[in-house]
Simulated assay, not measured.
Amino acid sequence: MRHTPPSARTRSRRDTGAGTWRGGIRRAIRVCSRPGPWKRGPVLAAAALLLGLLLLLHAQITDRGGLGSLVETFLPWFGLFIPVLLIGALWRRSASAVAALLLPAVMWLHFFGGLLGDKSRPGSDLTVAEQNVNADNPDPAGTARGLAASGADVLALVELTPEATGTYEKVLAKAYPYHTVQGTVGLWSKLPLSDTRPVDIKTDYGPLADTKPVDIKTDYGPLADTKPVDIKLAYARALRTTVATDRGPLTVYVAHLGSVRLMPRNGYWTVSRDRGAQALGEAIAADPSKRVVLLGDLNGTMDDRAFAGITSQMHSAQDAAGNGFGFTWPARFPVVRIDQILVRGVEPESSWVLPATGGDHLPVAAGISW
């Protein structure tokens, strides 16, 4: 058996001790040199602050190229970035990022927290409903039957075509003995209608506004991807009528504002929609009626600045008495609420989204009371 000399064992212990001591010093230096929790994740903290500022100052974003409207259309979805950033902050153990996330969290809850609960109340004097029935709807009769089954007293349909209007009139005749159609919008009612007229919402198709019919086939300008039906629907898209109820007259507007499009050269093109919203707001403001309901596909959310002229005098039934965000488009996987029920002089008691009936938008309904 080999024996290690005493002097060698002494040197070994001395070397081991020295190595351990030096290793401890290096570990201590590394620990001390690591950034503290308030210095970790500066990029995450900056992203959280930018998200909060976007929610806080969204109305100040330029609308050049429609950027402001585009941001406001999808404003609720920016809340998805909050849990993503929170996971990153916890993984990095960044106290600064967690603290910075308070700003977007508070702002999102301020704007949209009220939509998370059910604000509906039982009972109402009248039920109204609306749907964009889709000009390309392959089964208008089925759509009409589905809408009639909702039990609505007043039913607004937009994006009607001459070919399909007769089908809606036939199927809905029994449940709704009164109706009016003005251009591509119509109203069916269980109660008498009067003082009906079209409303000029100044639909503008941009470069197509002055195009001769013969030229439409060859030059769509920035609307090069427009479906043929959009050209077919380039006439009367709004109406006003009076519904005779047991509680007195109710003025109802039905509108289908112009489409919006994302285009490489023009950005988020909203010219037609914005002009229509302004004209519609002016018409409602000039209307002396005390009780007014607006039903329609407005091609925008009520967070969009383009609707300030309308939202300044009317409020959304979904916001006041709904349950959730009430997204309506597209029908298969709705991500925005562009079909609206807005009221003035009456109170919404409940608001909900109806099941799909074959159109590319989901129908919406609301119960209102005097």
Rank of each mutant, 00 (worst) to 15 (best):
W77A: 07
M107H: 11
R93W: 15
L362Q: 07
L294V: 10
F307K: 04
V84T: 11
V98M: 09
S12I: 08
V293S: 14
R240F: 00
I216D: 12
D136W: 10
R22T: 14
A277S: 15
V84A: 14
L157A: 12
L102D: 01
K290T: 06
K39L: 09
P207C: 10
R197Q: 13
T218A: 14
R275Q: 10
A152D: 09
N137G: 15
L116S: 07
S33Q: 15
G300Q: 13
L53V: 11
R40S: 08
G65D: 11
V158Y: 07
Q313V: 01
D304N: 14
G114N: 01
K39A: 06
N266R: 07
D304F: 05
Y235G: 03
L295D: 06
R344S: 05
I284H: 02
L233D: 14
G146K: 14
P207W: 00
A99I: 03
P264C: 00
R237N: 10
L257E: 02
S369F: 00
E72H: 02
T357K: 11
P76M: 06
P122N: 00
P192G: 07
P249T: 10
D304W: 04
G117T: 12
P198S: 13
A89H: 00
F333L: 13
L342G: 09
Y178Q: 01
E282S: 09
G36L: 01
G300H: 12
G113W: 11
G66S: 01
D219Y: 12
R265K: 12
P83T: 10
L86V: 12
L116Y: 08
H256C: 02
L172Q: 14
S312A: 12
F81V: 05
T127N: 01
A283D: 10
R240I: 01
S124T: 09
H315C: 04
Y178C: 04
V353G: 07
N299S: 00
N132R: 09
V335R: 03
G19I: 15
T127M: 01
L257V: 03
R332I: 12
E349A: 03
L116E: 08
V254Q: 04
F78Y: 12
A59E: 13
D339G: 06
